[in-house]
């Protein structure tokens, strides 16, 4: 799905989602795509909802709908946004960045914390990647969250055990 955007009062596009976000689109940036009757704030487009951070605030007063939608879309009008090197290095696919799988942390926790809970975390790492590859980005973020929850659990239980064992060791020395 390709979008046109209005940034600095100028309509630009069409862009894939990844490019659009890189152009500095915020929740309140007017966007338009084929099939829409008018410009709408990016924050109200359902397909874009997953791409914005939750901290972003919504400034409806900044909206400017004076520019009419550029229709029909002329591919020759495509404008590049950002440097071409970034594009060459990262490709212009429309996928959002993959959430953290916490694989490294979970391996470290499994090896260091004496509590093999990190293995459950590694299973959630695999689920994060699997769902991401299926295009289930919300599911991937959820699995990523659970990978971090099991990481924290293994560290917490490891610390509790460490304190307990340390205490018994010290008592045995007395």
């Amino acid at each position: 799905m390709e979008y046109w955007i209005i940034i600095d009062g100028k309509a630009r596009g069409p862009y894939g989602v990844a490019d659009m976000i890189r152009c500095g689109v915020t929740l309140s940036t007017p966007v338009w795509r084929q099939g829409m009757t008018e410009w709408v704030p990016a924050g109200t487009v359902r397909d874009l909802a997953g791409y914005f951070s939750v901290n972003e605030t919504y400034h409806s007063q900044q909206l400017d709908y004076s520019t009419p939608p550029p229709s029909p879309v002329d591919p020759a009008a495509r404008q590049s946004c950002g440097d071409s090197e970034w594009r060459a290095a990262n490709g212009d696919d429309d996928r959002p960045p993959m959430p953290s799988t916490y694989l490294g942390w979970n391996i470290a926790a499994t090896v260091l914390c004496c509590i093999p809970l990190g293995i459950i975390g590694i299973i959630y790492s695999a689920m994060t990647r699997g769902r991401y590859d299926q295009g289930d980005y919300a599911g991937a973020r959820n699995a990523s969250k659970w990978a971090s929850v099991w990481l924290i659990l293994s560290v917490v239980f490891g610390l509790i055990q460490g304190v307990f064992v340390l205490a018994t060791n010290i008592l045995s020395l007395l």
């Binding site: 993959m98 799988t101 694989l103 391996i107 499994t110 093999p116 990190g118 293995i119 590694i122 299973i123 790492s125 695999a126 990647r129 699997g130 590859d133």
Partner: peptide
């Protein structure tokens, strides 16, 4: 780097 196979390999190695 964090491909499906990396993660499966890590889980298999630990197990």
């Amino acid at each position: 780097v964090l491909s499906k196979w990396t993660i499966i390999a890590a889980a298999a190695a630990v197990a």
